[in-house]
Each structure stands twice: as structure tokens, then as C-alpha cells.
């Protein structure tokens, strides 16, 4: 009697949709605390940079002893910082446009088409994501030396486009796969040609994927260090290159100001990508 009651009792507890689905309360407390610490480890270093960038001290301390905009002033008035930033924005913007156009076209072919070698091509297109950046960097450097593309804007843009295309293809392919092809057939049966079908039916529906892909493409180029280090040269110096120099020699506090702006930028980007995703799902 006692023996058979125990499982029954347990069954009664566990069929209730309780919060203790997976573990006991005390272990949940420990788990929650541990998780909070891990989240703190992830976020705190990023968050701490922002107040420090407003520090009035010559060294970086936290909490800052006083407030000042000296590091921001430093950033905006020094030509090496501003020119590197402008260069990075120019490169990343061009890469974003190029990679998005190429990537959308390639995604259409890869999702809709059925031709020999499709799997292999798919693999080649995403592989820049998984091959270590240093390998891509020196490989491209090796042929750029012969093509006289080292230290050119075009060279840097093309190299970054190779690295950015996978992000576009992955995002756009994902939205294309969930796409109801009958919508296009309906458009065509109503007399739309293939361009009109693409422009007025396909494009609006897959636009969240394109948007996300474009954002990732921009960031892929904007944050890229190694390839730029090899092929950009001193005159075409990008922002990551300038930051890397600033960190290698002495730890330049101007980087706190740059970092704060970059963090704000990535939070905005993340928020807009999330917004686009929600809108595409209609909630």
C-alpha cells in the first residue's frame, strides 16, 4: 500500500503544470544564481566601458572620479581616428550593397534551382564563415600582391564581400524556404512577368531576411580586422586597424569613447533586427 502510493503521489505532483518541471527548488536557486553570474560576466565588461568613457581622469578607473568628454573630443578631433572611421563606414557600406545584391541573387538560385553541383556551391558560399580569418587573409594577400590590389579600396571591398556574402545567403535562404511559391504563381497567372513578380511579390515578402542579411554584411565588414591588416595598408586604415594599433602599443583611453559608440551602435542594430523579425511575423 505504502509502496504503491509513492509513485501515485509523484504522478499527482508531476502532472500538475508546475514551475518545477525539471529540478528541485534549492537546485533551481543555485542554478539561477550561477546563471546570473555568467550573464554578469558576459554583460558587465561591455557595460562598464560606457561610464568609463566619460571619465575625467587620465587613466581609466571605475567608477570614474569625474565626468568629461575628453576622450570623445580626442576621437572627433584627431584625424587618424576620424579618417579610419570614415574609411570603415565607406568600405562597410559598399560591401553591404554588393554582398546583398549578389547574395539575394545567389539565394534565389540555391533555394529554387535544381542543377548539378548545387550542394557543393552552397558549401563553398558558406565556407568563408568557417575557414579561420587568418587563412583567408594571407590567401587573399598572396594573390592581391600579383593583381596589384593591395592597399586599394576595391581590393578591400571585394575581400570583405567574400566574407559578408554567407550572412546574406543564410538569412535570405531561410526566408525563401518558408515562402509560399503559389503566391508567385498567382502573380504570374494574373499576367506579371518575372521581374514584376520578383519586385512586387517576392521582394516584399523576403525583405526581413534581406534586411537582416544586409545588417550582418555591414557588421562583418565594419568589424573585420585580419584581412584589412594585410591588404588595407596605412593609408586605407580601417577603424578596427586603428583600434588594434591603439591597444597594441599603449592602451589608449580614446578607445573607450570609440567602444561606447560601437556598443550603442550594435545595440541599435540588434534592436532593429529584432523589430524587423517581429514585424515579419506580424506580432
Amino acid at each position: 500500500m505504502v509502496e504503491s502510493a509513492a509513485p501515485l503521489q509523484r504522478a499527482a505532483i508531476s502532472t500538475r503544470p508546475s514551475r518545477r518541471r525539471w529540478s528541485l527548488p534549492w537546485s533551481r536557486v543555485i542554478l539561477g544564481l550561477f546563471s546570473a553570474l555568467v550573464l554578469l560576466y558576459l554583460v558587465a565588461p561591455v557595460a562598464i566601458v560606457i561610464p568609463m568613457s566619460f571619465s575625467a581622469a587620465k587613466y581609466l578607473s571605475f567608477p570614474p572620479p569625474g565626468l568629461s568628454l575628453q576622450w570623445y573630443e580626442n576621437f572627433f578631433t584627431r584625424a587618424d581616428w576620424t579618417s579610419a572611421t570614415i574609411q570603415s563606414i565607406r568600405v562597410a557600406f559598399t560591401v553591404m550593397v554588393l554582398a546583398t545584391v549578389l547574395g539575394v541573387a545567389a539565394s534565389l538560385a540555391l533555394v529554387r534551382g535544381s542543377f548539378p553541383g548545387k550542394e557543393l556551391i552552397n558549401l563553398i558560399i558558406v565556407s568563408p564563415l568557417v575557414v579561420p580569418a587568418i587563412i583567408v587573409a594571407i590567401a587573399i594577400y598572396g594573390i592581391y600582391v600579383r593583381l596589384y590590389l593591395v592597399q586599394t579600396f576595391v581590393g578591400l571591398v571585394l575581400a570583405h564581400t567574400v566574407l559578408a556574402i554567407p550572412y546574406v545567403v543564410i538569412n535570405v535562404s531561410a526566408t525563401l524556404r518558408g515562402f509560399d511559391v503559389r503566391l508567385e504563381q498567382a502573380a504570374q497567372s494574373l499576367g506579371a512577368n518575372s521581374w514584376q513578380t520578383f519586385r512586387y511579390v517576392t521582394l516584399p515578402i523576403i525583405s526581413p531576411g534581406i534586411f537582416a542579411g544586409a545588417v550582418f554584411a555591414f557588421i562583418a565588414s565594419f568589424d573585420e580586422l585580419l584581412v584589412a591588416l594585410f591588404i588595407a595598408g596605412a593609408r586605407g586604415r580601417t577603424l578596427p586597424m586603428r583600434m588594434f594599433e591603439g591597444l597594441r602599443m599603449e592602451i589608449d583611453p580614446t578607445i573607450a569613447a570609440v567602444s561606447s559608440m560601437l556598443i550603442t551602435f550594435s545595440v541599435l542594430v540588434l534592436a532593429s533586427a529584432e523589430f524587423a523579425r517581429r514585424r515579419s511575423r506580424g506580432d
Binding site: 554583460v43 568589424d223 578596427p240 583600434m243 567602444s259 556598443i263 545595440v267 542594430v269
Partner: peptide, 9 residues
């Protein structure tokens, strides 16, 4: 947020 923040930062 840290995932999308530059590694340099």
C-alpha cells in the same frame, strides 16, 4: 549584446 559587439571592444 556582447555577441554583436566587436571583439576589439
Amino acid at each position: 549584446i556582447p555577441f554583436w559587439t566587436s571583439i576589439l571592444v
